[in-house]
Structure formats: structure tokens, C-alpha cells
Write a protein that binds this DNA or RNA. Structure first.
Lengths: 148, 148
DNA sequence: GCATAATCACATTGAGTTGATAGGAAGGAA
DNA sequence: TTCCTTCCTATCAACTCAATGTGATTATGC
């Protein structure tokens, strides 16, 4: 399940990506236009900044902007920052692997194999979908996934 | 995220699928061999029975068995019973669609499009993976997904 | 320099979910 | 009858999620 937090983060990042030549956008504006609780959004933006995806400016006429070009930021990065690994189960994760305590033989585990496939598919789609490609409306993620 | 409940359900169903000619298997045996809390497992088996995936027999020499051939029961069915829709977000779900209250234009929503792709990929894999194919060890789910 | 406006940083809250356990009721076999 | 096993409901503690509150800090404009 994608949390509200991750969904709001994606919305905010897409809003920032639509700003022309990296102009600042304020939390209050994003909150209003995207229908996101303002204070909750601040929390999210803070986290995105700490992870280096956006930078911020304080004081009057402050706000937020992408820290990198929109075609170098993927849905996968954003979702992982907010919700952690994409894999449905830790033993199938690359970025957050953890062994199942109740698993006898991990190598032969059919559940792990299935979940690994799901993880790979999700990663293929979300890591192939950039803010840029999402803004221009296309289904670039799917194409990238199919050719990788 | 796949819940413990769903993971335990998959393990239990795989154990039942490995029984020869539908012989009964008791909750206590499954619990022991699969490292699952016994009472929690009972809860899970109850739910699987109510959904018609297994049937049960009470009393001495009672137990559980699949209600249908192993090649007609998919991971997708089991996961949906335990955890609900596969889609990461309700607005991208086929089986449990719900509109996002904060979404302006669902048709154009890039997040929804991405999550729909993830859902379709996950469904392709999990609905193509049967207890039968999982038992025989192969990655039949992946093959089914690719050809569907 | 002062008021204003914005981000930064925690702390807290309330609701809901998850994972698990308890205790018996009901049904079947020996 | 007497075990044995499933059936069913209730309960629990711990945790997570979504959101709010309260200030502190920093920059701008007058």
C-alpha cells in the first residue's frame, strides 16, 4: 500500500517539476492546489530536502524547488524515501533485505520468488518513471520497464 | 506490504497443496512445520474456508484440505482475501476501486497511471502463479504474466 | 531595527491496524 | 462417553499512520 505521505510527496514533487526554470513554490501554495494538509506537507518536504531531492529557501518569498533536473528524479526514489522498500516482503527486497525468521529454506521459498518478481516489476516501472516523463503525460515507465 | 497473515496463508495453502490426493492436514501440523503461531493460523484457515478455498473436517482425524485443484488456486486470490486489493492505491484498483478525495482530475493523474501499471504487473504475476506451479518450483507466474 | 513571512524542528495526539492469545462451544470418531 | 479437532468471539498490546500544535529560526521589505 502506498501511504498518504508517499502520495502527497509525489504530488508535491510533480508540482515542483512543473515550475518553470526552478522557481520557488511555497508549501502553502502546494497544499492548497494539491489538497494536502499544510503542516503534514511541511513534514514531507522536510524529509525530501534532507534526502537531497529538493532545496528550500526561508523567509519572505521563500519556498521549495527541485534540487536536480526532473528527468533524474524517479517515482521509485520518492516512494522509497517515504514508505521504504518496494518489495512486498523484506526477504525479497534489494534495498532493505531482512531474513524471514520463520523461513526454513530461503533459496527454495516459493513465496519469496513470487514476491521478488513483484518487486522487480514494481521497481522496473517506478524507477523508470521520472517526474519529467510523468509531467509530459506519457507512460514512459512502462516502456522503460519493458526494455530493461 | 504483504502482511504476516497473508504470508502465513500462502505457506499454509502451499502445505495443503503438497498433500497427496487431498489428504487432511491438521492446523497443529501446519503450525509446527511452517513456524506459524497455532491460534493465529486457525483464524487464517477459518477465513480461507469461508472464502471457499479449503474445506475442513472436525473431530478426531480432522483437518484441512484444498477445496479445488491446486492449479486453479492462485497467489492473487489468497493475497486478496487476506490483504485486500493488490493495487498500491484504491483509485488504481479493479477489485476495490475507491476515488481519491483529494484528486482533481483522475483521468490525468500521473500517480494513478503509475500505480495502475504497478497493479497490473503485480496482478499479472500473482494471478498467474498457482499453488501447483509454485510447488513444482518453476517461475510459471512470470511466464504466464509475459504471455498474457 | 522591526514587523512580517516563510521554513525548520519536535512533540503530541487520536484513530486504526496488526499480530497474536484466551477460552470455551460445537461437532465427529473411537 | 471421552477425547480430539475445528469453530467462533473477545480481547490485548504494540505499532503505525495521518494530522496538528507550538515554537524557534531565518530572510525580506519597510
Amino acid at each position: 500500500m502506498l501511504s498518504q505521505k508517499a502520495k502527497y510527496a509525489l504530488k508535491a514533487m510533480l508540482a515542483l517539476a512543473e515550475q518553470k526554470n526552478g522557481e520557488l513554490l511555497q508549501a502553502a501554495d502546494i497544499a492548497e492546489h494539491q489538497n494536502v494538509p499544510r503542516k503534514f506537507l511541511e513534514l514531507i518536504l522536510l524529509e525530501l530536502r534532507k534526502q537531497g531531492l529538493i532545496h528550500s529557501h526561508r523567509g519572505k518569498h521563500g519556498g521549495y524547488a527541485l534540487a536536480k533536473p526532473a528527468d533524474t528524479i524517479t517515482f521509485g526514489q520518492i516512494v522509497r524515501i517515504m514508505d521504504g522498500p518496494l518489495a512486498p516482503i523484506p526477504c525479497a527486497s534489494l534495498t532493505g533485505y531482512r531474513r524471514c525468521v520463520d523461513c526454513q529454506d530461503e533459496k527454495a521459498c516459493a513465496i519469496r520468488k513470487a514476491m521478488r518478481e513483484v518487486r522487480d516489476a514494481a521497481a522496473g516501472i517506478l524507477d523508470g518513471m521520472t517526474l519529467e516523463s510523468a509531467c509530459s503525460g506519457g507512460s514512459a515507465g512502462a516502456r522503460a520497464a519493458l526494455t530493461s
